[in-house]
Design a protein around this nucleic acid. Structure first.
Lengths: 203, 203
DNA sequence: TGCAATCTACCGAACGATCGGTAATTTAGC
DNA sequence: GCTAAATTACCGATCGTTCGGTAGATTGCA
């Protein structure tokens, strides 16, 4: 799971820099941005605080890179493959499946850390928020198509979009702490729950 | 909105101590526990850091009191009145309405801060988590009754409970940041969305 | 092939700032 | 004159960051 420009070849051993970012992301997911110190990150990769600064330029820049990397992965794993699905209902179902899987398996970097956006400079905040809105647009578009074909319940598309996103990040959060459950069951139930909220009851 | 044992009479001017806790809660909601410094809180109420310590015993204890106070209010505003409603469907609807209103209006102390539980000592964490579980039980019980009377879709009650809680805290979070919308509309849509996810379609 | 020059990856030490918290002291109100 | 409330003046620890320096590998040139 390589970070920043230093994307090592897929099968090669991870760069030291990549290891640093990986460890940082893990710690920040667990304890938040403010709650994670540079010393901790350094210790996690067996290095001095000073040594770390050979790989990073600042703590804030680190967060920006981690967030952008998370969005890259989101696009790679979820957005891109899902765009190919024509039927909006199936597209939505797959989006949720893939995104929850991504959240649960590849660490929760995806979303949990997005609550820490405010630690970035304003312009950097805009950059990330823009990418998130693109992702929201994907969901909104599926809902719009469903509405066009008459399959959607009468509802506010904006609010529904937020509920869908919220449900997915929620699932990832429980999974991370105490709430243990079979992953496949959890995903299936969540998709069913959400689709029931969205679609007209079958005739 | 009085805090700790120093609950001033409902119509009286708020105690200085209450003001301190109020400001602290507000700041912590905005910037997190770790992101809020004692000096900031002191400044917010026009006091020195040292002066603050006349009113509080420690930062951690402050968090515990804020969390417990939030649960007190939750019980006062939501739990207690809702328990009186016999029909489980209406009980659930009212629970959601009241809780979202409480979240949005009385500050988001209720839930936003519960992600900061880990800053407490383990035994204090248990104390708060216990109170939250009691609240979950209220929702679970409504779902159980709905299932008994055959009104509930076939679903996992535990997972559904989490989704309901998650939706409510989610709504409060959006409301707090950029996502602006008419409060009544937001509540109505959320309740409708959730009930559609839960109940069998009407015959 | 040999050797100097350069680069990578790290270290120990220290910077100013801020953290949560304390002791002694002054001020304000009954 | 007593108590409560707030002050000034600190403490040790830690924060993110920068410094000068160095062992070891890599490169350029004769």
């Amino acid at each position: 799971m390589p970070y920043s420009g230093l994307r090592s070849a897929p099968d090669a051993a991870p760069t030291r820099t990549a290891e640093v970012y990986r460890a940082a992301a893990e710690l920040m997911v667990e304890k938040g941005f403010g709650g994670t110190s540079i010393s901790e990150i350094a210790q996690a990769v067996g290095m001095t605080k000073a040594g770390l600064y050979h790989h990073i330029s600042s703590k804030q820049d680190m967060l920006l890179r981690i967030l952008n990397h998370a969005m890259d992965e989101l696009e790679l794993i979820v957005t891109t493959p899902v765009r190919l699905i024509e039927d909006p209902e199936e597209r939505l179902r797959q989006l949720m499946r893939l995104q929850i899987q991504g959240l649960v398996r590849h660490g929760l970097v995806f979303v949990v850390l997005f609550s820490e956006i405010n630690h970035l400079a304003p312009e950097q905040q805009q950059e990330i928020r823009g990418r998130i809105k693109e992702h929201h647009a994907l969901i909104r578009e599926a809902l719009r198509e469903l509405a066009e074909s008459g399959r959607l319940r009468s509802l506010d598309v904006n609010i529904a979009t937020m509920h869908i996103m919220n449900a997915m990040t929620g699932v990832a959060r429980w999974k991370a702490q105490d709430f243990a459950s079979d992953e496949e069951h959890l995903i299936h139930e969540t998709v069913a729950y959400t689709m029931a909220a969205l679609l007209k009851p079958e005739a």
